[in-house]
Amino acid sequence: MRHLGILALAGFILLPLVQAVILSFTATLPTEAQGSFGLMNYQGVLATPELRAAMVNSAFYVTLNVALCIGIGLPAAYALARTRFTGDRHFLLAILVFRVTPPVVLSLPIFILFSQFGLVNSPIGIAVVHCLFNLPVAVWVLESFIRAVPREFDETAYLDGHSGLSFFFRHLIPQIAPGIGVAAFFCFIFSWVEVVFARILTVTGGKPITMAIQAMFSFQTDIGRVMAMTCLSLLPGVAMIWFVRNHLAKGFTLRA
């Protein structure tokens, strides 16, 4: 019974992925070769400069976004986990509200604002704007992991003469490394695949993978090649899932 449930779940999750992988190995354009199997779609993707550039752009903005969210989120999470301060609950409410503000609501002014700073058509712009929904997530996850560390841990470090930056880098960060991994994972999954801000901020250049795929759709779309590009774009995500697998399973509790 239990196993049947798992099998049904696996079927449901894997079917669309299997379909995509099959298509990515199939010649789909109506030519003589239509229907034949092979690596031609992947070769086609890797031979296209725009698609290679898109992979670099995506990797760059997502790395920058994760670094920003962790770097800025960690002090805030520490403050929330260890102290009470005037307005702490309002801060929690504020980050919740920003997290759930639909991106489409903000897309127009974000475009105008960012074009004044010269951040349109640049992966940096995407990295910054994705902090809107990823910084709150990073704060929630990190706060939950810091809370699980007993406060004596901080006090011992202080008694040993570590304070400020030295405490953060030499004591706290190694201690909550799994939490940083989990926070990075959640930031990654919301940022890597996002389309609304990515579309509005990359009009002519700096396109990430999602928008490069969008641009492959035309009057006669080579759906096999589209699927090959998509399957390649899954690889970093799958790697990310693999790295955090044990920490996701160990247990943490978010609080808003």
Binding site: T83, R84, F85, F91, V105, L106, L108, I110, V129, V139
Partner: peptide
């Protein structure tokens, strides 16, 4: 947890960034 308003210094960068990409565009809309 002890009450300590110096914690605001730790929260300030996050608040500034969210103000820039969240509050400001929201007011504009």
């Amino acid at each position: 947890r002890p009450h300590d308003n110096r914690a605001w210094f730790l929260v300030l960068p996050a608040l500034t960034l969210l103000g820039l990409v969240g509050a400001l565009p929201l007011l504009a809309v």
